[in-house]
């Protein structure tokens, strides 16, 4: 189990991480998600031992690793640009960590073959890394990271350099690989869909601090604040007064904002609230419907069929699905 508490890292005086806390359970895939410049890569590098924190603590199984240099931590790190060694072939790259452990060359060879098999590149050992496609490079980098069987696998935007269709394919594959080798994973990304697809838990990082840490569903259902709600892609943020007009009352007088997940809005001719359809866009599988409530209020929902713009529509809101916060 990895525990990070009150971690602070400064570059030239400006904090890149500012008192960040995070716990990664054994054999879980924990995603660290945040916008660029939020400190997520710095967090990863500090855990890997490549960046020295100014204060705070990092422990593995309750023992501090701060005094342990990067090469002795037993944490694997994979980079967005893969950082494959250009002077070594595929097998040479994958074998690197095993050689550092001083393993017998016969063992190394069989482990390299096993890992290349695992990532779906059997027989690629003799290939030069310069001849590989982007997806193949990604798999080699993953194989290199997993080969020494690290206690913790750190991944920094591992799919960031790939195009969308390949990304989705590899994401599912990576999840099954991590489950198969029972890896403990901390996965950094800025992409919500990627995070939600692979994560057991998602931590949200903002300005060097962790602002939320929950399961993907928990995060979607109970975002802790408006910024996080918007960041994970929730759109229907409404002032308490606007919600009151829809018959949705805030739980207390201090909660000023509510967010309605799109699936909590149901369209029906007999529903109690009226609106005008302002836009209707096909997004593969369903239509994204924009409802104009008048007075500048807009709500977004999904519908299996398209509705022409300008049409009057009626809708209900599932009150139990609305989450509230002071914002």
């Amino acid at each position: 189990m990895l525990e990070v508490s009150q971690l602070t890292v400064r570059f030239d005086g400006t904090p890149a991480l500012d008192g960040a806390d995070l716990t990664v359970e054994d054999r879980s895939i924990h995603v660290l998600m945040g916008p660029s410049g939020s400190g997520k890569s710095t967090m990863l590098r500090a855990i890997a031992g490549l960046e020295a924190p100014e204060s705070g603590e990092i422990t593995w199984n309750r023992r501090s690793v701060l005094g342990v240099p990067a090469h002795k931590r037993g944490f694997g790190l994979m980079f967005q640009d893969y950082a494959l060694f250009p002077h070594r072939n595929v097998a040479g790259n994958v074998a690197f960590g095993l050689r550092m452990q001083g393993l017998d060359s016969a063992i190394i060879r069989s482990r390299v073959d096993d890992v290349l098999e695992l990532v779906g590149l059997p027989g690629y050992g003799d290939r030069s890394v310069g001849t590989l496609s982007g997806g193949e490079r990604q798999r080699v980098a993953l194989a290199r990271t997993l080969a020494p069987r690290p206690r913790l696998v750190l991944l920094d935007e591992p799919l960031g350099a790939l195009d969308r269709s390949l990304r989705e394919h590899l994401l599912v594959e990576m999840r099954s690989i991590f489950n198969r080798v029972e890896a403990t994973v901390l996965y950094v990304t800025h992409d919500r869909e990627e995070a939600f697809t692979i994560a057991d838990r998602v931590a949200i990082i903002r300005d060097g601090g962790i602002v939320a840490d929950d399961t993907p569903e928990g995060l979607w259902r109970r975002p802790p604040d408006g910024w996080t709600a918007r960041f994970i892609g929730l759109e229907n943020l409404c002032a308490a007064s606007a919600l009151a007009d829809l018959g949705v009352q805030p739980p207390s007088s201090t909660t000023t904002t509510g967010v309605i997940p799109p699936e909590a809005i149901s369209l029906s001719p007999t529903a109690s609230n009226a609106a005008t359809v302002a836009g209707s866009h096909f997004r593969g599988g369903a239509y994204r419907i924009e409802l104009d409530l008048g007075a500048g209020s807009m709500l977004v929902t999904w519908s299996p069929i398209g509705i022409e713009s300008g049409t009057a529509a009626r809708f209900d809101v599932d009150v139990t699905r609305v989450s509230w916060f002071e914002d």
């Binding site: 090469h71 694997g76 980079f79 690197f96």
Partner: peptide, 18 residues
């Protein structure tokens, strides 16, 4: 790319080995 050296470090190579 300094990432090459970082990668080698995280794979267990000490500074001199890197």
């Amino acid at each position: 790319d300094p990432h090459l050296e970082d990668a080698a470090r995280s794979l267990g190579a000490g500074r001199w080995r890197v």
